[in-house]
């Protein structure tokens, strides 16, 4: 399940862009889920762990991925840290829910991300309450951001 702490949170990795560049592992890039996220968000194809084919930049290294995709890959692969997911646009919201389908995921949000109109399951760590739709999420978390 996706667990979100809204607002200031201690010991969060805020600059996910720089953190990713210095810690990512090759196998993170070639995982099927990473390939899908890179294709959807950055419109790019993973050729191998060190080469991604972008329609804008041509063949590029993973360091050139968007801040949003870097953050998603970190959240999926590095459970030892909590990451600032406000580096992700709304087009990353469905992927956050996907990553958290089969494991506990904790993220920090400093803005109100749009998780869509459908049903979902998110625990707001500020209050401990689990919410199942956007309306309840706004009610529960709106005051913290």
């Amino acid at each position: 399940m996706l667990n979100i702490y809204y607002g200031d949170m201690p010991d969060v990795i805020r600059n996910t862009d720089v953190f990713f560049d210095n810690v990512y592992k090759d196998q993170w890039i070639t995982k099927p889920l990473s390939r899908d996220m890179i294709r959807d968000v950055d419109k790019s194809e993973v050729f191998d762990a060190r080469a991604i084919i972008s329609p804008i930049f041509g063949i590029m290294s993973p360091e050139k991925l968007s801040g949003g995709v870097k953050t998603l890959i970190l959240i999926d692969n590095d459970p030892a840290h909590v990451f600032n997911a406000s580096n992700c646009g709304d087009n990353c919201a469905k992927w956050l829910l996907k990553i958290a389908e089969k494991k506990k995921v904790v993220i920090n949000l400093r803005h109100f991300m749009n998780f869509g109109k459908g049903e979902f399951k998110i625990k707001v760590l500020n209050t401990g309450k689990v919410v199942k739709n956007a309306h309840d999420l706004i009610y529960e978390a709106g005051r913290y951001v």
Binding site: V41, I56, S66
Partner: peptide, 24 residues
């Protein structure tokens, strides 16, 4: 690789939006 054409109407422009659009 890229061209950015920016019209700034106020002194402070906050840029948001989806990931992967070239902000960084």
């Amino acid at each position: 690789n890229v061209v950015y054409r920016l019209d700034l109407h106020k002194r402070i422009t906050l840029v948001r939006g989806n990931s992967g659009t070239g902000k960084t």
